[in-house]
Simulated assay, not measured.
Amino acid sequence: MKESVGKLKALLSVLKGRNVVIQTHNFPDPDAIGTAFGLQNLLKHFGIEAVLVYCGKIDKLSTKLMIDELGIEIFNAVERQTCDSDYIITVDGQKNNANFTDIPGTEIACIDHHPWTTEYHYEFVDHRMFGACATIIVDYYLDNDIEIPVNVATALLYAIKVDTNNFCRRVTEDDIRAFSALNRISDGKLMTKLVSNELELTDLRAYGAAIQNIVVYDIIGFVHIPFDCPDGLVAMVSDFIMSLDSVQLAIVYADRDGGYKFSVRSEMDEISAGEITKLALEGIGDGGGHAEMAGGMIPPSGKQELGHHVDAPIRERFLNAYKKLLPEDC
């Protein structure tokens, strides 16, 4: 029996007769939203209604366009409050992660593709290290011979495309299988529209700050964006810094609610982006993720530990973490 057949049966058994909420990570990106939307439609196929919620904001134009064009109904948890009796499925992340706000209800299930870090006990877990979390949902459809509607296929394909950086990052055979299936079903014109509208005019301000503020130590590039901007944009600037031929490790951070939001990229086999972020922010914040890409946060309380001139101590923390993680023979 294919893995996703048994997994789906187990998930449906856990959710039977319950009010179901699907929660994405805070400030959700296309992979989180596409995963949630695909799962919502899948559960509906079996007579289970689910509500999609998130915390934070959705302020990236391309993500808003995805939601509007595909008819995705997703609510801010402040506007659509959950209750203690709700069963919550966390997607594209795990309970107790820094980017998952605790909301009323019982976190009963988790579907995720990030390295496993939580000690929380879920009744159901589907954890597979695919390039995108949405690929897990596609597996459910394909292995159980369930038809994928055009709008759902488009959402899932866009999610996988974005999270694998156009199928250039952490791509697995399952991601390719998902692409092959979704590409035949999805709305090609809408995909082109989504892909060609990923940058806003106001985003150029963040790129300008990156060009003006970049500091490079050997192969490590640091950028402080001195204003708040969407998570997706911080990640795009991080990818932009990685395009420099002299940079193999990029640390980009932007002001966020009295603290800082981090996006880290690594193309070094010896240094995991997730490990260096977690180690560098230990004691003042939190972070983690994949070997190639990671995120992190420093809350206002952690910022106070850095003093008035934050850039130097942040760089020092990452440089020290780099030295600790770098093998002695390198």
Rank of each mutant, 00 (worst) to 15 (best):
L201R: 14
M191H: 04
M268S: 06
T202L: 04
M268F: 06
V237R: 04
Y260A: 01
E282L: 12
S272Q: 09
Q212N: 12
L194W: 09
A209L: 13
P230Q: 08
F222T: 01
H224E: 14
L190C: 04
K278P: 04
V247L: 08
S238K: 11
G258D: 00
M236I: 01
A280R: 04
A235N: 15
V171M: 12
D286W: 07
I214Y: 04
D228R: 07
I211E: 10
K189E: 15
L281F: 05
R265D: 02
L201W: 11
L244S: 10
D218F: 06
S246H: 11
S263K: 07
F262N: 03
A254L: 00
I271P: 05
K193F: 12
S180L: 10
A280E: 02
Q212A: 13
I251C: 08
I225C: 13
D245W: 11
F222A: 05
D175F: 05
A206L: 05
S246A: 12
S263A: 13
I214F: 06
A209W: 08
V237P: 07
E275C: 08
G285K: 00
S238D: 11
Y253Q: 00
G188M: 09
G287N: 07
G285E: 01
P226D: 12
A181L: 06
V171S: 13
I225Y: 10
F222R: 06
L281C: 06
P230H: 08
S238T: 13
A280V: 09
L199N: 05
A210M: 15
D174Y: 13
R177W: 03
E275W: 08
S272A: 07
L201I: 15
I276M: 06
G283A: 04
D239L: 03
Y207M: 11
N197H: 14
M268E: 07
M236P: 00
L279E: 04
V237N: 04
M242Y: 02
